[in-house]
Computed example of a mutant assay.
Amino acid sequence: MYSCDCDTTPISFAVPTSLRAYAPDEADAAAICPRCLRVEPVADTDTTDDVAFDRLSSSFPTGEAGVALALAIGLCASLATNRSALEDALEAVERAGADPLLALDRLLAEPSVEPAIDLERRRHQLEQLLYG
């Protein structure tokens, strides 16, 4: 069960086998809160085939790129611990055809998004991971 304290319904999604190493508890399903962006594992029965990532932002990637970006956001809670996994997850976003930094910038511009962690500060560190 998702335990976020925000008064909003989380966005649940299945985690493909190729991305499970980046999921919390290596779960086969996870959810992201559209307000605080907390990512937590959920029961696989909570997911649907039509993931509503547009509830985060109309420019949030869809499909595997969206799943990889959501998981990368979850990994941002601890850059030191998750550095390698985060780098791999961001590269998975790129391989799936999306620009992770641009998507993150657009997400942070959404007025309804209030990240639980300082993603604006982490964005610079993410850029260094990708291109540094």
Rank of each mutant, 00 (worst) to 15 (best):
A14R: 07
P41R: 13
L37A: 08
R95V: 14
Q128F: 13
L102C: 01
D49Y: 05
A43F: 10
C4D: 09
V15R: 08
R35Y: 08
D44W: 09
A92F: 00
R83V: 14
L79D: 09
V15I: 15
V51W: 06
L107C: 05
D25T: 10
T62P: 01
P16R: 02
A80C: 01
T17W: 03
P115G: 04
A116L: 12
L126I: 01
D7N: 13
A77I: 13
R20I: 15
L102V: 14
N82A: 04
L104M: 10
R38C: 05
S3G: 13
A14W: 02
V113I: 12
A89G: 02
Y2T: 15
I32R: 02
Q128H: 15
C4I: 10
E110V: 07
C4L: 08
R106A: 01
L108S: 04
L56Y: 11
C6N: 11
P24A: 11
D28W: 01
S112R: 09
N82G: 11
A23G: 13
D54C: 05
S57H: 06
G97S: 04
P24Q: 14
L19K: 07
P61I: 09
D50Y: 09
G63D: 09
S112E: 12
L129W: 01
D49Q: 06
A98D: 07
T47C: 11
G132V: 08
A43S: 15
S58Q: 06
P16Q: 05
A52I: 04
T47P: 00
T47S: 10
G132T: 06
L104N: 05
L71W: 06
G66Q: 06
G97W: 00
A68C: 05
D7H: 11
A85L: 02
L56D: 12
I73R: 03
S84F: 07
S3M: 10
E120D: 11
V51H: 08
L108F: 01
L101F: 05
T45A: 14
A89I: 05
P61N: 02
E94S: 11
N82V: 11
R83D: 12
L107W: 00
A98R: 02
G132L: 07
E114S: 07
A72Y: 00
P16C: 08
L69Q: 12
Y22R: 05
D54S: 12
D50K: 12
T47W: 00
G74H: 03
P10T: 14
T48V: 13
A29H: 08
R20L: 11
P61C: 04
V51A: 10
L107G: 00
E64T: 09
D50W: 11
D105E: 15
A23C: 14
Q128M: 15
D105I: 08
Y2H: 15
A109N: 09
L79N: 05
D46Q: 14
L75G: 07
R83A: 15
P115I: 12
A116R: 10
P34L: 08
A89V: 02
R83G: 13
E40Y: 02
P24E: 13
E87C: 01
L37F: 03
A21N: 11
D118N: 13
Y22N: 07
L86E: 05
D50T: 15
G97V: 02
S57G: 05
S78H: 08
Q125I: 14
S59A: 10
S3Y: 06
C4S: 06
A98Q: 10
L37E: 03
D49W: 03
C4Y: 00
R122W: 00
C76H: 01
R55P: 01
V42H: 01
